[in-house]
């Protein structure tokens, strides 16, 4: 990709495991273990995988809410992985996050107007009157009435709260929004409203999204490209249609075959994976997926597979994937 908005290379987030008595380091959780990603302007990259695969930690490290222990994060051409708080401040305006749980991510003691004005106060933007006008405009943008500003989060439903969370993320006119399971806590009929809202905002404002989700059907409606993570590593990256209809990594294939389809009697021959995801504190040697992989060979237990480009924009980290 020429001139991506965000380019992440070799990102690592390792957490120490310390013994409770002497505080000695007794191990390492490799939550994110060498992740490469690119996001273009106005594009949606979906980051998918099961619990514990490191997708949320990757998102938080990109936002520098967690410090990466290695690798590079280039945003708008500038390396920010090692920036301290003052040099990060301008980047905080350009990248925002929408959280999964609309009940836990809004301060219950603040009015919605106060929540939405806070970003302007923190970044010292505008007069009080300007801020009022901007808050009203934000509410209108996400489909809420201006009176909502005087009310408290508990007075709203889950879907409305998620709209408030999106309005807050939009306040500083960011270029990139990371959505961490933004519709997972919502009912199906409300989910569609929020997905449509996010797509409309993207079209109007040229926003780039990183959508972190375990819901592959939702992802198939919002993503331009998809990266699949397993145990801290990206195992496959591809354009949306390729990933859903021509996946090459055995884990991606198993994940897709596990998605239940809302059509009775069209149940596909399912590859049910055996066992559980191993602990990221003790990942298997070689390919992390090899103990559960239906086609694993002896070399998979020894050598880490590096991402291989099999088609333009399609990379697979598997020794055995057909080119």
């Amino acid at each position: 990709m020429a001139d991506p908005l965000l380019k992440v290379s070799g990102l690592e987030v390792h957490f120490p495991i310390r013994s409770p008595f002497l505080r000695q380091r007794v191990g390492t959780v490799r939550a994110v273990d060498g992740v490469d990603l690119e996001v273009g302007r106005g594009e949606t990259l979906a980051l998918v995988g099961e619990s514990g695969c490191g997708k949320t930690t990757t998102g938080k490290a990109i936002l520098r809410l967690i410090d990466p222990t290695g690798g590079s994060i280039r945003f708008g051409g500038e390396e920010i992985a090692q920036h301290g708080p003052s040099r990060l401040a301008p980047f905080r305006r350009r990248m925002q996050i929408v959280f999964q749980d609309p009940y836990a991510s809004l301060n219950p003691r603040m009015t919605v107007g106060g929540i939405l004005a806070a970003p302007y106060e923190i970044h010292r933007i505008g007069t009080t009157a300007d801020r009022h006008a901007r808050v009203a405009e934000l509410l209108r943008t996400v489909g809420l009435p201006p009176e909502a500003a005087r009310r408290y989060p508990h007075e709203f439903s889950g879907g409305q709260r998620q709209r408030i969370g999106i309005a807050r993320a939009l306040a500083l006119e960011p270029e990139l929004i990371i959505g961490d399971e933004p519709v997972s806590a919502l009912d199906v009929s409300i989910q569609a409203q929020v997905i449509n809202l996010m797509k409309r905002l993207q079209a109007e404002r040229g926003l780039a999204y990183i959508m972190i989700s375990h819901n592959l059907a939702v992802v198939s409606h919002v993503a331009d490209r998809v990266a699949v993570m397993y145990l801290g590593r990206v195992v496959e990256t591809a354009p949306r249609e390729t990933l859903f209809f021509d996946a090459r990594h055995p884990y991606t294939q198993a994940l897709l075959s596990a998605v239940p389809e809302p059509v009775p009697g069209r149940r596909r021959a399912r590859q049910v994976l055996q066992g559980d995801v191993p602990s990221p504190a003790k990942p298997p040697k070689g390919c992390h997926f090899h103990p559960r992989c239906p086609i694993a060979q002896p070399r998979c237990a020894e050598e880490v597979p590096l991402p291989r480009v099999v088609a333009p924009g399609h990379a697979v980290a598997c020794h055995l994937a057909a080119p």
Binding site: E50, L255, L273
Partner: peptide, 11 residues
């Protein structure tokens, strides 16, 4: 549960 585990439990 995750989808791959969901598939196991439903089966």
């Amino acid at each position: 549960l995750d989808v791959t585990v969901q598939a196991q439990i439903l089966e």
